[in-house]
Design a protein around this nucleic acid. Structure first.
Lengths: 340, 340
DNA sequence: TGCTGGCACTCGGTCCGCGCGAGTGCCAGG
DNA sequence: CCTGGCACTCGCGCGGACCGAGTGCCAGCA
């Protein structure tokens, strides 16, 4: 129907206007700024309907309208045209990420880049251990009864743990152990490592068995939450922009939630690669995020995401732009990790 | 002189009162809350002198007085009695830090702990590479012309770099190379590594020389700023407390400066072990920090600090408490790193 | 000489009342 | 079904008045 179509355009205009001006938008301003082809009075009627249906609301009687979470949701779902990045932006991405020297560096640059592109808080997850493969396992003797286990994954993550071994070991034994472990685990997905452990202990030379068991146990421990997932956060300064406006009174809890990491990790758990997920306002379970939106996507080539990244900002954000930025950065990060 | 002594007490009272209430403090309130033994009128006279000398100031005529940076400085310098931590706090420290599983974990817990104890922004520096010693060097072949160099220090830091090697290598060669490098570097301070490189290349077997040179070069590269120093920041949510009050308009720049890291690292560069450094307001060079104070100390046993940690907050902070907390956490971190 | 109580003065914060303007809903007409 | 007109509502900003905290100064007292 023609009406529905126009109402959609009205809603879209309201969202766009509100996002850019941060002022409740009235019928006259809409008619003036957007070429809707109808008079303010007609727009008012449409707005009344939109309000009844819950897409917009007015903060008080004689103010303009503001999109509700439902309004944003509708807007985002109908976002057909993904705003392509400008040439300058593409260039900035390359410039920013090239020359990264290791994983930490890649993710650090990514988070800064994303924060800068979107002017929001950026969040980047380290590649999940359990979906990474072992590149190398190293054992460094600390004393005769303590070994340092160093795990290096194909994504460049390095984890280390001290292993208390049940029997005293000598250099030769450690070398043997190292060979055994690497033979067994190198190239294997960590998520499947637990399956191998039993067999490995079984088939190991008798004098190595307690050692293999101890080291394997420690290895599996690193795969459990929360140490398996790590997060880099950047651009929190961007929150301070219009904090009072966007997050009335909820600024501090929001920062706390971000530092908590767990909250964000939970959001991130659902992301798939290449499909951008947008979570708007009240859709977020955590209370501190009910005034915020979260745009996220998985990165990493292949069917399963190695990790996620995204941005957090006020519901009043430039969804189209942020989605594009998040997607672009994820693609670059995926490439960078694949080629290292 | 009796006067000077009383004036000092007045200044101290002003600082304490202002820190706890965040209201400019007047003569009457002072007389009522602190047992100075004199009347408000006398206190007024003292305050006039203190103001003339630049220790306090009044935001506007007919308001109370507020300490100036100079006033805080004087207060801090005369802080004889370090407030000892409460038993509960000591317990919290132990509980918080025990069970840390690796360096990242130790520092992460420390920063959270410090933020919680002081209710300020906490900052912890990773152990400086150049002052750490090599525990182990590992080489993992990525392809015949690329090696992954993994450096493990005695403080538990792990750094990795990809080394492009000039000639194709085989597994045997890599093993030889690894042995050579570990023989040369294990146990050596990284700061002194550059001295060794020339000799090492010289004395290496001819076929290893280009490899040793390439790997050593990469090793030395990791020692230059900014990758040599890393920072963990936590408790930024604490800034949001009275951001408007404490940092009028400078909230965002402050967050930016903290994220910048470089600024903080520069401040941290000067810290020595065991001596707490306090940098107040305008004493900080960086503009965004002119309304903030920085309390820091080095951690690590021995004469030279392995790294620094501290807190950043408004000049209006509990210096005695924060100094005590920073010192206590530094001691614990030092112990933890020493025993691993 | 130094402390004290009293007093006049200053000045920022708060409250109140008012007018303005943006925005709305409704209605009659095209 | 759209449009222009109109009466109505309210939040915001502005200006004035009041209030109270705090000060500086001064004369008196130990």
């Amino acid at each position: 129907m023609a009406h529905d179509d126009r109402r959609l355009r009205v809603l879209r205009a309201i969202v766009q206007d509100y996002v850019s001006t941060n002022d409740p938008v009235g019928s006259k301003a809409l008619a003036a700024r957007y070429d809707l082809g109808v008079s303010p009075a007609t727009i008012r009627n449409d707005m009344a309907v939109l309000e009844e249906e819950g897409y917009i609301t007015q903060p008080h009687t004689s103010a303009g309208r503001v999109p509700t979470d439902k309004g944003y949701r509708f807007f985002v779902d109908r976002l057909s045209a993904i705003k392509p990045l400008s040439a300058a932006e593409r260039k900035a991405i390359e410039k920013f990420l090239d020359g990264a020297v290791d994983l930490h560096d890649v993710l650090g640059r990514s988070v800064r880049l994303l924060a800068q592109l979107t002017r929001q808080v950026a969040v980047v997850q380290y590649p999940t251990l359990s979906r990474s493969a072992v590149r190398h396992l190293e054992l460094v003797p600390l004393s005769t009864s303590r070994l340092l286990l160093v795990l290096i994954t194909d994504t460049g993550r390095v984890e280390q743990r001290v292993v208390e071994v049940p029997v005293d070991t000598e250099a030769d034994t450690v070398a043997e152990l190292r060979t055994t472990l690497n033979a067994a685990f190198t190239g294997a997905k960590l998520g499947e490592a637990s399956d191998k452990v039993a067999d490995l202990v079984e088939s190991a030379a008798p004098h190595l068995r307690p050692l293999v068991a101890a080291v394997s146990a420690t290895l599996l421990e690193t795969l459990v939450e929360p140490s398996e997932d790590r997060l880099v956060i950047g651009g929190t300064a961007n929150l301070a922009q219009g904090s009072a406006l966007d997050f009335p009174g909820t600024f501090r809890p929001l920062l706390e939630a971000l530092e908590e990491q767990v909250v964000v990790l939970r959001l991130m758990a659902e992301v798939g690669p290449s499909t951008v997920t947008v979570s708007i306002g009240e859709e977020n379970e955590h209370e501190a995020l009910t005034a915020a939106s979260f745009v996220s996507v998985g990165y990493g080539s292949g069917d399963q995401a190695l990790g996620g990244l995204g941005v957090v900002g006020p519901t009043r954000m430039d969804y189209a732009g942020n989605i594009a930025a998040v997607r672009a950065v994820a693609r670059y990060v995926g490439h960078l990790l694949a080629e290292s």
